[in-house]
Design a protein around this nucleic acid. Structure first.
Lengths: 223, 223, 223, 223
DNA sequence: AATGAATGAGCGTTCATTCAT
DNA sequence: GATGAATGAACGCTCATTCAT
């Protein structure tokens, strides 16, 4: 079971084969969740539907996940971990700040688009914003927040360093981290509502430019 | 029933007293929805829970709302209308752009804080974005989108006008509108996580400054 | 209250006016039941609907009837009493047996047609036979049976007398009474399904002829 | 699910064992319906009561029937099919008309007695005719009518043929068919009220005799 | 006497979870 | 390990009944 972190001391080592099967099943079921939620929304994400899509029996899911909440938590964490894995390397990069920011935003935007079907409901698009909240998936929240906090923490650190180096102005790093996350999220949200969204690169340029210089006219003196 | 807009022409006028009671009940039930959803999330928003919190019987809700969907739709519309009523006047104001932006952000921030509990799930704040939804409330969507589109459209128009006047630089007004909304929303989130958040005015200053000038060091040349 | 048969000894005599109003209300409500059930079936016969049709408030019904069951029982009894009031005089008539039978059948057929809308559900037509039974009106039965037993008893007595006089052959009067009731009921049931049913008189002739002589060829010797 | 007639072509064959279990469950649930309705009337036929009597959980019923209506429809059809299967062979028989009529009446009487509890409400016996229904089971109608129309049509054809052959006199075959059905139904009712009803054979003789010759004194001339 | 807003028991239905095979 | 038939708690909703006005 995926969520069973510390295996009991008496448990025999799983054979390599068994572990492989487990990995395979877990992936299949998780993909089924992403697929069903992405295509038909959380309302359709009953265990029966997920099991059907994964090609396993309903009961089988319980061999790998404690319960429905555990499955959803696992899936959300998986997506968030992917985001983090793609974004974090850019923070440690040696490039210029603008390049690092651009890389970071590109990475975020890319992975978000990959899982847009799923995130669409948990990270709602403008046209879906009020669609979200059903009752069943309240459990997804804490596990996502946990990941998100880590990510935001890292981003905050990254920004604080940049400020110390004079790459950006000194300001509330916490607010700024949130501001960036929201800017990127908002952009993907806008993209999803457009028939012909601009290329990712152009999108990134716009975001980075706005984050760096704001909306006031170029060359104007500050108010 | 709240959603029954056009009363039959032959219907006798409701007495003033009856209308008062209706207003009172509708408010009580709506507040219960806002309260329950805000405190415990949409998952807890069963009719029984709402009724309990409103201090009425389950059946009473059906005297004022057609069904659960109608109730949720009504509540969402109510909140969105409040947002709009507070924000829109600033767009038509004759003040400088910076002042109008500040007023607009202040208004948004204020009403968002008022209904933060509810909106947290339906207009999810960044830290909750992945937390949201289930399926039950898919119906809330259309009625809110209708409101939200109008609001965003107005904001977009406001920004386009400002660009034409040279008050801000010319850019994609749609993206910018979303960007601002997300910036404000994100600020609320940050505030919620802080023990001693700054005063609203300071918060607004930070947001407006960031929106206008971005994070690059003051006085630096653009990249 | 209609069903309160023996008024308590201490009760003051109702004034004539009060009695008149009571009579008026009871009739209005009863007619509403017959109308609603007749037009829309027992499913639609909620107290609210009945009250609306009767032009009184829901609560008012409870001033005249103990509860819903009491109201339905009253209505069914009323219809049955009408049947009986029309049919019984013919039993005591001095005409020939065939004439008395014809009169009796005519009377039954006529009153049944009058209330066909109501009876349609409780005395189902061929095409409705299996439609009947809902759960709510189980109470109607005992009160109808009580009346029907009385009627059948009278009919049985009438037939036994006729047999003693040699007007009909001697046979099980109980069975025969039931047989006649069923024949008449069946006929009206057939009529209701026909676009252009024959005149009542012709219908009666057919029934009486069949009851008297059966279906074997005229003039044939008995098997 | 019983009502799911055409299984998808790609569906794997149900194992013999599974089919057996399904058959078993469907029968148990159907018998529970017949039992509950028969004993306590349609009013008592809630899903909980049916489930209890069938010895299964409420949810189990939904594995085999789409919903309550489907269950009731299935049960009614089952009974009607039994009636038809027993009655129809006699119509095609080569015996004399009286014998065929006797066989037919016997078959009808027998199956009616078997399911008398259930049919009492849906094919109401004369003494229960006013007792029946509420609204809940309106859905039962169409599926039964379909069956009943076929049956009555066959009976009508049978009678028309007999009339053409001179076995009975020429008359309205439709009315006569209904008349016979009602005569048989009425007999059941009479039997139910008797402590010691006559043997089925004697009962049949009485009915057939009455249907053939009517109640007028033997040997008397017709009026 | 008359009202109708308020009530809550009870319904049909869904679906996460269990467990015998 | 894998299955899916079986379960029953919990939901949204209806409507007969009550009672303050």
């Amino acid at each position: 079971m995926v969520s069973r972190r510390p295996s009991p001391p008496t448990a025999r080592r799983r054979s390599a084969k068994t572990a492989l099967i487990e990995e395979f099943r877990v992936r299949a079921i998780r993909e089924a969740v992403l697929d069903v939620v992405g295509r038909e929304g959380p309302a359709a994400a009953t265990l029966q539907r997920i099991a059907d899509r994964a090609g396993v029996a309903k009961g089988t899911i319980y061999l790998y996940f404690k319960d429905r909440d555990d499955l959803l938590r696992h899936t959300a964490r998986f997506v968030m971990d992917e985001v983090r894995a793609r974004v974090e390397p850019w923070m440690a990069s040696q490039a210029t700040f603008a390049e690092r920011l651009r890389g970071l935003v590109t990475a975020g935007l890319t992975v978000l688009e990959e899982h847009r079907g799923f995130l669409r409901f948990y990270l709602p698009l403008p046209q879906d914003r009020l669609a979200g909240g059903g009752a069943r998936d309240a459990v997804v929240r804490p596990s996502v927040l946990e990941r998100q906090d880590t990510l935001r923490g890292a981003l905050k650190e990254f920004l604080a360093r940049a400020a110390r180096r004079g790459e950006i102005r000194r300001t509330d790093a916490n607010r700024l981290a949130q501001f960036i996350v929201d800017g990127v999220t908002g952009a993907i949200v806008t993209r999803l509502s457009e028939a012909r969204p601009p290329a990712i690169a152009a999108e990134v340029d716009w975001i980075v430019d706005m984050l760096l210089h704001g909306m006031s006219p170029r060359g104007r003196s500050r108010s």
